[in-house]
Amino acid sequence: MLAELDPLLHSQLRLGIMSILMSVESAEFTFLKEKTNSTAGNLSVQLDKLSEAGYIHIEKSFKGKKPLTTCKITNKGIKAFEEYVNALKQYIKP
C-alpha cells in the first residue's frame, strides 16, 4: 500500500520552501521570495502554515529600521520532509 503524501508538504510553494530550508542553516524572507519566485503575500501565508504545523521556526527582528524575518527548519520539519521523500520514492518505483 502506498504511503500518503503529507498534504502540508504536497504543494509547490511549501515544498519549495522546505527544500531550501533543508539545505541551509537559516534563510531570510527576501531570500526565500527570490528563490521560490513567489509573491510576498503568498509566501507569508505559506510560511505561517508551516510554522503553525511546527515544521519551521520563524524569528522576527529588525535590520536597521526594516523588519527582518528569518526562517529555520525544525526537527519536526526535517522528519516530515524525510518521510515525504520516502513516500515519494514509493510512487516513483517502477
Binding site: 503524501l5 504536497h10 515544498l15 513567489s38 515525504y84
Partner: peptide
Amino acid sequence: METKHDNLNPQQS
C-alpha cells in the same frame, strides 16, 4: 511559484 495542491505529481515534487 504558486500554491497548487491537486495537480502536483511525484515527478514534479
